[in-house]
């Protein structure tokens, strides 16, 4: 049986208490929400917090508020979002992403905040301690070399969150609270450049909520590539948002994920799309440009060359789905 290492456990009632505890406990403390990412990591001994601060009693971090904009409590379960009829209608891309996360059982437990703060993944890393010992560990945990890219100075572990690219595409912001106060950052600013420093969120900050602006007439889609219809993390994913002016693109955001340590905003493709109709030719070219930003390496399921090809196909399909 895979077992957890020992830890101290706190379950405070307010976000402020969480922030105070985090400040007091120092960097060896971690927040646990649903535990569906953290507990497996702890069982495999690649995250070993001495203290866990659970959000399960922090009611203020729950709930979905909708007017023009949408606010999601960070500690809302994925399942609650999935079953929120109005949310599904208003933000179908987000719904698709949330609904594609792992399995219904896991979505009953996992939270949206946890999904945003998900540890990056790599199949040299997401293994038991004994296994990692057999490969001499790697840079992300206990080792010195990146086995995915041995000459690399950074870690290429993959941001594998389904919701993150959608939040970026929708222009969402994240609000972080620490004992020093509160700050709100654009979704993209949350993510670091490297699979080790994958979040810009400080260790003493708790993500309290996500704000998604009114989408106006813009529409969005999310497409995920994975081996099986359940369980599997994305090995390539695209979130696309397009606002049309007549049949032409007024504004768009294209975000790729699961093809590198950080979600990729496809600026070049977005610039290319501006003012153009979503013709076959245009979507194909935009997808090609977008695909350039994808740098999948051989550290997930499926071959990296295949993922690189398929991310273009899926980007094109996403844009096609957004035609008037």
């Amino acid at each position: 049986m895979m077992r957890l290492p020992p830890f101290r456990y706190h379950a405070p009632r307010t976000a402020a208490e969480v922030a105070t505890l985090l400040a007091g406990e120092g960097p060896e403390a971690m927040i646990v929400a649903g535990g569906t990412d953290l507990y497996p990591n702890m069982k495999r001994r690649h995250q070993m917090p001495k203290t866990l601060i659970s959000l399960r009693h922090v009611d203020e971090l729950r709930g979905v508020q909708m007017n023009g904009a949408v606010r999601l409590g960070a500690n809302e379960t994925l399942r609650a979002l999935e079953w929120h009829g109005a949310l599904k209608e208003r933000l179908p891309a987000l719904w698709t992403a949330v609904q594609s996360i792992s399995t219904p059982l896991l979505r009953n437990m996992g939270t949206i905040g946890g999904n945003i703060c998900l540890d990056t993944r790599c199949n040299y890393y997401n293994q038991n301690w004994e296994w990692r010992r057999a490969i001499d560990f790697c840079m992300k945990c206990e080792g010195t070399v990146c086995w995915t890219a041995p000459s690399s100075s950074i870690c290429w572990a993959v941001n594998s969150s389904d919701s993150v690219p959608v939040f970026i595409a929708l222009g969402a912001t994240f609000t972080l609270v620490s004992h020093e106060g509160e700050r709100t950052i654009p979704a993209l600013a949350m993510f670091g450049e490297d699979g080790i420093e994958y979040l810009t969120k400080r260790k003493d900050e708790v993500l309290t909520h996500i704000d998604i602006p009114d989408q106006g007439t813009a529409r969005s889609v999310y497409r995920k590539v994975r081996r099986r219809g359940a369980f599997d993390f994305p090995v390539a994913a695209v979130a696309a948002r397009v606002a049309l002016d007549g049949d032409r693109v007024a504004d768009s955001t294209l975000v790729l994920n699961a093809v590198g340590p950080k979600p990729v905003v496809c600026e070049e493709a977005m610039a290319y799309l501006a003012g153009k109709p979503l013709s076959d030719e245009v979507v194909t070219e935009a997808a090609r440009l977008a695909g350039r930003g994808a740098k999948p390496l051989d550290n997930t399921d499926h071959l990296s060359m295949w993922r690189k090809k398929v991310v273009q196909v899926e980007t094109r399909r996403a844009l096609e789905a957004l035609r008037p």
Binding site: N123, Y124, N126, Q127, N128, W131, A134, I135, D136, W147, R227, R228, G229, A230, F231, D232, D301
Partner: peptide, 24 residues
């Protein structure tokens, strides 16, 4: 197996060794 890393089993887990789910 990873011949680059001493022949370790590349995917010794239920998540990575792909057994078809209800969807397949």
């Amino acid at each position: 197996y990873r011949s680059n890393r001493f022949g370790v089993h590349k995917i010794p887990s239920m998540l990575e060794y792909k057994s078809p789910t209800t969807h397949e």
